[in-house]
């Protein structure tokens, strides 16, 4: 694989070269212009989104005073933290189990593990809704379990798709590490847990963190599955905003959107920085 591109052959000449550059500039503008317009209008003092009538932070003030939104953000944060923790543990174990061991039924498990990644949102949402409808009574018979509560259902369904995403990311990391380090630890009489704790875990940590970031993002972004399983009093912010913006455009939603967008971009930047740190550690 040649990394250094021979520019004379790769880059077209003359007019097509400029067309290629112009096209790329237009596509980047297409990516970012809508976001900037949205952010710009969130600082508009007017009630009407399209009419600029001066700079104001009034909508951000409204956002801070809106208790429903605040509450829905707390629901989202709770669901996000719980589902990320559970799916990181289960997903990492699943990744280790598939990548480092061979057992009967593994192939089938591997195939099922891919399904939540590729399944369309709507199908997943229908599955979870129908399942909780049919099985809620069974679960509620178990003492201490109450599946009429929305938060539990949200956490359970977010974990159902996040395990797969976490395990894919951790597996990618595991596949790039050869098992000799772990074998060396075992040769030096480390038991299974010690090997995992002192050798495997530090090595796969970037993958685990990457998986966690992905799980956080997916949990916060999810609208379709969440709106099917959320109950009254447990509306996550994505579902709340979705409900608001189906009614139409308002400067308040713009302000909320900018906050959500800023949060999700902060996560991207965090993950990119993390990736840089990791790849420099690998000494590549």
């Amino acid at each position: 694989m040649t990394k250094g591109v021979a520019h004379s052959t790769a880059e077209p000449m003359g007019l097509s070269r400029w067309l290629l550059r112009g096209h790329s500039a237009v596509v980047y503008a297409f990516f970012y212009a809508p976001i900037f317009v949205l952010a710009f209008y969130s600082f508009n003092s007017s009630q009407i989104v399209g009419k600029w009538s001066g700079f104001s932070l009034r909508w951000y003030g409204d956002f801070l005073e809106n208790e429903n939104i605040q509450e829905s953000i707390w629901i989202s944060v709770k669901v996000c933290i719980a589902s990320t923790l559970i799916s990181v543990v289960l997903g990492t174990l699943a990744a280790l189990s598939i990548e480092r061991f061979r057992w009967w039924g593994q192939k089938a498990f591997d195939a099922v593990l891919y399904l939540p990644i590729i399944i369309p949102d709507v199908t997943m949402a229908v599955m979870m809704m129908v399942f909780f409808g049919e099985a809620a009574e069974l679960f509620n018979a178990i003492p201490g379990v109450d599946l009429t509560q929305g938060v539990e259902k949200l956490v359970l369904s977010h974990v159902a798709f996040n395990i797969s995403f976490v395990s894919v990311v951790v597996r990618a990391r595991l596949a790039n590490l050869d098992a000799t380090m772990e074998e060396a630890a075992a040769d030096l009489y480390a038991n299974g847990w010690q090997t995992f704790r002192h050798v495997t875990l530090p090595l796969i940590m970037p993958g685990v963190l990457g998986g966690a970031l992905l799980a956080i993002t997916l949990s916060l972004d999810d609208v379709v599955v969440s709106s099917f399983v959320s109950a009254v009093g447990a509306t996550p912010v994505s579902v709340y905003v979705f409900g608001m913006l189906r009614k139409g455009v308002s400067p308040l939603i713009n302000a909320v959107s900018v906050v959500i967008l800023a949060a999700s971009m902060a996560l991207v930047v965090a993950s990119l920085v993390l990736e840089r740190v990791t790849s420099s550690q690998k000494g590549k």
Partner: peptide, 22 residues
Amino acid sequence: SRRGFLLGLPAVIYLLVFFVIP
């Protein structure tokens, strides 16, 4: 092989209950 299976078991059970059954 049994150890590997046990490691994967929590995820297997979870996906069985909350994905395959649904």
